[in-house]
Structures are given as C-alpha cells and as structure tokens.
C-alpha cells in the first residue's frame, strides 16, 4: 500500500511542477540511514523520484511554510497532523490558503528512532522500515523481519484521533484502522505535579529545538530571545528553564495540534507531549475547541464569547 502511495505522491508532485502551478514541492526523501527520512525540497519534475512515503516520514513539513509560502505558491505533502498545522497557519494569517497546494496522505502512525529503540530494535541493524497494512515491518541485517504493532508508534501518534488530513487538494490513502488511546488528565496533586515537572525541566539545556521544529512557533523574535526586555535569562537552571516551559506552554495552548515533533526533537527527551496533551484537554473542556480543524474558524484565543467559562470561576 505504501509504495503505491509513494508512486502517487511522486505523480502528483510531478504534475504540479510540470504545470508550473507551483515552483517547489516539499516532501520527504530517504535519510542517511534506513530508519530516518529527511525533508526534501523538489523544484524540478525529474527530481520527484526522490520523494518517499514510509513510517519514518516524521517531520511536520508545515514548519517550512511560513518562510517559503509567503513568497510563492508551493506544494506540500502532509500527514493528518501536519494538515492541522496548515489550518492553524491559515487561521492565524501566517500563510494564505491559495499559496499552498496540499497533497494529503492518511496515516496509521509514525515510527521514529525513539519508538524503534523502545521496541527493542538495534538501530545499527535496521535495513528498512515499511508499512504492513496498519502495522510495521522492520527488516534487520540478518535478513530477519519483525512486525511491530501500532503500540510502537511515536509518542504523539498514540493518542491521535485524526487519521485523515483535515484539509487537502489531493487526498491519498485509505482510512487506517487505528484506535487512539484516550487522553487521561495528568496524575497527582498540584505539588506532586510541580515536583515532577521541576525534575523534568531541570534536564533542559535550552537549545530551543522544541520551538524551532514547531510549525506554530513562528514568531520572528521569540520572547525567550529578547534581550531588550528580558523574560528569561540564558542561565540554564530551574528558574529560567521553568519560565521557558511555562511561556512555551501558554503560547501553544489552543494552537498545538499534537504532532509530537517537539518531543522528538528534544535532545534531552523531555516529555513535552504530556504537557501539550494536558493543555489541549483544558482548552477542549473549557471552550469545546480542537485546534487546526477548520481554516474559516477563528482561533480560540482570537475570539471572545460572553458565555466563555472562566477556569477560576470568577
């Protein structure tokens, strides 16, 4: 199934470039090792053969749109979560819908290297990772191939309830048969949770990769980088780390679509998705709002209703 979709992605990209509808198609290409892919920027129809579609297509390519789709019309290949990032960007007027031609693909879940390691796979032995219906085949050096089930997906995919793109111009693939795990509220009392997060935030080295990889983090000057008005010091320590993470969380609540790229990018493996899911759950409960679903809808922070619930009950 995957190869057929890969062929169709290439064909669609070729059509777009040949008709000059777009000058650039962003997709994924083979990585330097079999269990990784890399973002690809395709400008000529001959190069579409570089495009791939496999369970390692993890990058949310919408992160590149704010830079390239301002200037020209571009094509982009998206998974369902990535399509929701595009909706957010359109809602927030960072790009205009007319400037993107979206090739959307349904998705049973992604397998990144963390997921493979968790499943006990020795990365050095991996020769290929493919879809097998809605589960995964991992072929290793000894010629053996093992089947991983959907439990082995990337952290962000485990609770994903949207397996088909919410917006696209061309849509490929069949609806996968995947049951998302329910989102449970964060466990523990306030002080237990504070202790838990202090312990996690302590590891952060403040490289801001979580921000750079995120399509919703497009501010040209992040509050964390300002030195004319200093919100955080560069001091790596619990107080400033905490400030960074609270700022990040508050700025993404109601906007994060849960692709899980921040957690994947983090070199210190901070469990960012736990926080992201928690604020998404709050926004859903308080305002009945799910981010990135409808480009015509106003973003939750961009609208006000008299009957909005006040979380503090005032």
């Amino acid at each position: 199934m995957a190869n057929e979709i890969e062929a169709r992605i290439r064909a669609e990209a070729k059509k777009l470039l040949e008709s000059s509808e777009v000058t650039l198609v962003i997709g994924w290409e083979a990585g330097s090792v079999p269990f990784k892919t890399s973002p690809a920027f395709i400008e000529s129809p001959e190069d579409v053969e570089r495009l791939v579609w496999n369970p390692a297509c993890t990058n949310n390519l919408a992160v590149y749109l704010t830079e390239v789709a301002k200037r020209a019309r571009v094509g982009i290949v998206v998974k369902p979560c990535d399509s929701r990032s595009i909706v957010t960007l359109v809602q927030e007027k960072q790009i205009s819908r007319e400037n993107v031609t979206i090739i959307g693909v349904t998705c049973p879940g992604i397998v990144d290297d963390t997921a493979l390691k968790k499943a006990g796979v020795r990365l050095i032995d991996v020769l290929a990772v493919d879809w097998n219906g809605d589960s995964f085949n991992v072929t290793t050096g000894s010629g053996k191939s093992s089947v991983l089930t959907l439990d082995a997906v990337k952290e962000g995919c485990r609770t994903c309830a949207h397996r088909a793109p919410v917006i696209s111009d061309v849509s490929l693939g069949e609806m996968p048969d995947a049951n998302p795990l329910p989102v449970e509220p964060m466990e523990g009392s306030f002080s237990e949770r504070r202790e838990y997060w202090a312990n996690e935030f302590e590891r952060c080295i403040r490289c801001y990769a979580c921000r750079q990889i995120c399509p919703a983090c497009y501010c040209t000057k992040c509050f964390a980088d300002r030195n004319d008005l200093k919100w955080t010091n560069k001091h790596v320590g619990i107080s400033d780390n905490w400030m960074w993470h609270m700022g990040r969380a508050m700025h993404l609540a109601g906007r994060c679509i849960g692709c899980g790229e921040c957690e994947r990018a983090c070199p210190m493996d901070l469990p960012m998705m736990k926080l992201n899911r928690e604020f998404a759950r709050h926004v859903e409960e308080l305002f009945g709002y799910t981010p990135g679903m409808d480009p015509e809808e106003l973003p939750v922070l961009g609208q006000f209703n008299y009957d909005d619930k006040d979380p503090n009950g005032h």
Binding site: S38, F41, Y64, C207, A209, Q212, A265, P267
Partner: peptide, 16 residues
C-alpha cells in the same frame, strides 16, 4: 544551500 533549506537552526548539533 541545499542543507540550509532543511536546517531549522535549532543548534542541537553544536550543543551536543
């Protein structure tokens, strides 16, 4: 230029 298009400027490579 090719690599720069992909690079998100996160600096992880140098931090590590």
């Amino acid at each position: 230029e090719e690599q720069a298009r992909k690079c998100i400027g996160c600096g992880i490579c140098t931090f590590m």
